[in-house]
Design a protein around this nucleic acid. Structure first.
Length: 554
RNA sequence: GCGGAUAUGGUGAAGUGGUUAUCAUCUGAGGUUUCCAACCUUAUGUCGUGGGUUCGACUCCCGCUAUCCGCACCA
């Protein structure tokens, strides 16, 4: 299925033409790190921008840019420190590193679930032999993390931190600023494109698994109690290839998938539709896209539903987008860790009133009687049922027992009125692996054709992602044609967002071929006639057709 | 991380324990050419890296790094 020779030719071309190159190659290179070259750099930024523009279409999202350097506490709260770690220990005799939980498998039913300290004491108690040399001299257990760790600040004041493994956490920790910005009305979203870092044990398959990668994520905050009435009618005519959890692939519209409960949440369905449109816009072959639902055992424990967009390319089916309904997990985690509220308010249709009919203390007598304990006494008394009779002997929160006399208490009757409540919003998160998408855009656009019996390659890139928008050629670099072409090139380059390329070397056919190979959609050629009547030929990449147009109309 | 393969101009390949490493292509310059990798002249640019063996290593040996393929890991 995988055509390895085509893959090699494609990789060679991408390197030769400056799309993708191994980073720091003159120093020997580094695994999992790539450069977007003179051609690829522009393409990456166009795809990033296209992604932002596409999702801005929701109308209620903003763009953020958060630091990549992230304090330890943030990623501890998010669960990354725990989830992304292996606990390693080193043999003092042969230096072989082993996973502590593997060593202790014989001594504990589930060592994977233990914390570092528990593993440490178990390791010291059991002294398992080193699988390499049989000795039992183990070093202290260290968390070997898949995140790049670093120190924020110098010397003794330095605090531990990581390079972020995803962009999402900065958006969660910014929730209160977002809430104010959106006038305290949900739903709303925040998105960002940027770098993420994972110190992969074995980066593989070129752009598919990198140590530093480009990602684009949207965190869309919703009220779990308001009905998900997302409009799916825009995709009524599109049959989606779906692979539901543990079932056979099916094809159906988003509307039907929602009605049948295949997709569990309408917002997830709508984002699948928007994702579909984005992939089509940047030139992915939509016949090679499917959406696969995470099976319950691979889904993160907090997620309520998760669909991956998978794209088929030279490496088979690769997950390129994840659309996850994450529930309230993230905001709740940061709330717990910081004690800060990350909530939204929901007003009730009707204010809710509750009648309180119980006891409270009489401050004038109970205060002097209980002094420092008065606060605890008050809390305890207010928790007593109305039927309590005094004097009563009660246990306080701190364990002390006190006797409460009738003169210490008085009836407490009042009406509590609540007009609304605070809740933790739920989050639907589309997360895009931009590098993987760029790879598949290139993979799908790469067309090996034949021209006059010779191999001919064209990058059939969509104009939205083409690294060069237009190329300008003088038919010959003399007799003023070169000057005329240079002027047109300058004028086009002066336009915001337009990249023009001037090329005057080699035969005209060679220049068309070079332009085709990096996917320039249109080429302009200046010839003798241009000098007389101001017209040029405009050539379309995909059809080869040429039309003569006045150069002022460009 | 384990196992296997590989590493020669920008790209793709050949080759050798001993003078100046070969070929194609690409790229630059000049010429020619009135629109799709044409042609002529000419130029630039290479043995991944560190050690060892040797009078001499791009070639043989070892380590490292990188790439590709399995397995494992990861999403």
């Amino acid at each position: 299925m995988v055509d390895e020779q085509r893959l090699e030719r494609l990789n060679g071309m991408l390197k030769r033409r400056g799309f993708l190159l191994p980073a720091f190659e003159i120093h020997g290179g580094s695994k999992g790190l790539y450069d977007f070259g003179p051609v690829g750099g522009r393409m990456r930024s166009k795809i990033n921008q296209a992604w932002i523009d596409h999702w801005l279409g929701l109308g209620n999202v903003v763009e953020l840019s958060c630091p990549t350097v992230t304090p330890y506490a943030v990623l501890e709260a998010s669960g990354h420190v725990g989830e992304f770690s292996d606990f390693m220990t080193q043999c003092g005799s042969c230096q072989e590193a082993s996973r502590a939980d593997s060593l202790l498998e014989a001594h504990h039913p589930n060592p994977d679930a233990l914390k570092r300290d528990e593993l440490q004491s178990l390791l010291e108690a059991e002294k398992p032999p080193c699988p390499a040399c049989g000795m039992t001299d183990w070093s202290e257990i260290l968390a070997q993390n898949l995140m790049f760790n670093t120190t924020i600040g110098a010397g003794a004041s330095g605090r531990p931190g990581f390079l972020r493994p995803e962009t999402a956490q900065g958006m969660f920790t910014s929730f209160n600023a977002l809430y104010r910005h959106f006038r305290e009305r949900l739903p709303f979203g925040a998105m960002q494109v940027g770098k993420g870092y994972r110190n992969e044990i074995a980066p593989r398959q070129g752009m598919i698994r990198l140590r530093e990668f480009n990602m684009a994520e949207l965190e869309y905050f919703i009220d779990p109690e308001s009905p998900a009435d997302d409009d799916l009618s825009a995709w009524d005519t599109v049959s989606f290839a779906l692979v539901p959890d543990g079932k056979k692939p099916v094809e159906m519209t988003l509307e039907v998938a929602c009605q049948q409960g295949v997709i569990r949440h309408a917002t997830v369905a709508r984002f699948m539709g928007i994702t579909y449109d984005f992939l089509a816009k940047v030139g992915i072959d939509m016949n090679r896209v499917r959406f696969r639902q995470h099976e319950s055992d691979e889904m993160a424990h907090y997620a309520m539903d998760c669909w991956d967009a998978e794209i088929e390319g030279s490496f088979g089916w690769i997950e390129c987008v994840g659309i996850a309904h994450r529930g309230c997990y993230d905001l709740e985690s940061h709330e717990k860790a910081t004690g800060k509220s990350l909530r939204a308010r929901r007003e009730f249709d009707e204010p809710r009133t509750t009648l309180v009919d119980a006891w409270t203390i009489d401050g004038a007598t109970a205060g002097p009687a209980f002094k420092a304990l008065a606060g605890q006494v008050k809390a305890t008394v207010e928790g007593l049922p109305k039927s309590t009779t005094f004097p009563a002997t009660v246990a306080l929160e701190n364990g002390e027992t006190v006797v409460i006399e009738p003169e210490h208490v008085k009836p407490n009757q009042r009406t509590l009125k609540e007009t609304g409540e605070w809740y933790i919003p739920h989050v639907v998160e589309p997360a895009f692996g931009i590098d993987r998408i760029i790879w598949h855009v290139l993979d799908h656009a790469y067309a090996e054709q034949e021209k006059n019996g010779e191999a001919y390659t064209v990058m059939q890139l969509a104009p939205a992602v083409a690294p060069v928008d237009i190329a300008v050629f003088p038919l010959f670099e003399k007799e003023g044609m070169d000057d005329a072409a240079a002027k047109i090139h300058q004028r086009l380059c002066g336009r915001p967002g337009t990249v023009s390329m001037y090329d005057g070397s080699g035969s005209i056919g060679r220049r068309y071929a070079r332009a085709d190979e990096i996917g320039v959609p249109q080429c302009i050629t200046v010839d003798h006639q241009t000098l007389q009547d101001g017209t040029v030929t405009l050539r379309e990449r995909d059809t080869g057709e040429q039309v003569r147009v006045p150069m002022d109309s460009l």
